[in-house]
Design a protein around this nucleic acid. Structure first.
Lengths: 155, 155
DNA sequence: TATTGTTATACTCTATAACTATA
DNA sequence: TATAGTTATAGAGTATAACAATA
């Protein structure tokens, strides 16, 4: 309970509570995804922003809102994306205060690579389950997760 | 992906990946447990230590190891437990460097209260599942979690 | 007066170092 | 030389404040 239990084997206490098990497995999943993305030189935060840009350029303020990231954090993230050549700031056509963040070709490639990474990692994670078990897990989690937010309108 | 998605409704992207769903549901679970414990004036960290003391007094160093908490953090945690009257430090019978941390009656009561809280919260969380679904979820998560650590020998 | 993007700052958590008193 | 407990310190990560430019 106390911390991350970085060790590779599941503490016995955790194995007895479905809630703790959930946290344990999710922590493991997070670690796997971040490690896999890290090998491609990308953080989960950066992927989040790139994903939000898939549908077209966005103002920084919208990105902050959508991803629920504080504005100063978004500044840093977009600096990183620009440094990597994955996205760039351009002046907003009508609002001179704002910048639009545009996805660059290298960023789109990175997104495709990230898609493959996420898919592979997911496959590894759930390989011990049958397709039926996996489908049932998904539907059960969906029910536990509660209502789904309405679709975001594009820029 | 990026951060905590503090909002109460599930972003659409998350709903499509079993891995993300897992993280989402686990985050929600963590929030529920911590809120419920908080109402009883207890943190999850503190509960972790109290639970470790259930089987008998422990040296601080062992507690740090078992719970994978850094030594300075354990100092703070045990200070908190002493301030709350739930546990106390006593000199180790043979090793004059060490202290033994003992569970006090108020701590044992708190543990029982925490047990009830955890049980109630678990019940709330999984109330939308049938007993069969819940059992299958548990067994599937157990498989995803991997090997279970061997029992800790008592102090 | 409100909003955009930025810089500066504070606060919490996590992690390490350094120290004493023993073993 | 190593270990137990403590204090001090460093570093991320997270959150807020304040500011200039513009709406």
């Amino acid at each position: 309970m106390v911390r991350n239990y970085v060790g590779r084997s599941l503490p016995r206490i955790v194995s007895q509570s479905t809630g703790f098990l959930l946290s344990w497995v999710a922590g493991d999943a997070k670690h796997r995804f971040e490690a896999a993305l890290g090998e491609a030189g990308m953080t989960a935060h950066q992927l989040g922003v790139l994903t939000a840009l898939r549908g077209g350029p966005q103002m920084q303020a919208r990105l902050s809102e959508q991803l629920e990231v504080f504005k100063p954090v978004m500044v840093t993230l977009i600096n990183e994306l620009e440094a990597a050549g994955w996205a760039e700031r351009r002046p907003h056509p009508t609002d001179r205060r704002a910048v639009e963040v545009h996805l660059l070709p290298a960023g789109r490639q990175m997104l495709e690579r990230a898609d493959r990474i996420m898919q592979t990692t997911t496959e590894e994670m759930f390989s011990s389950l049958t397709p039926e078990e996996r489908a049932q897990l998904h539907s059960v989690l969906l029910r536990l997760a509660g209502p789904i937010a309405p679709e975001e309108p594009a820029s």
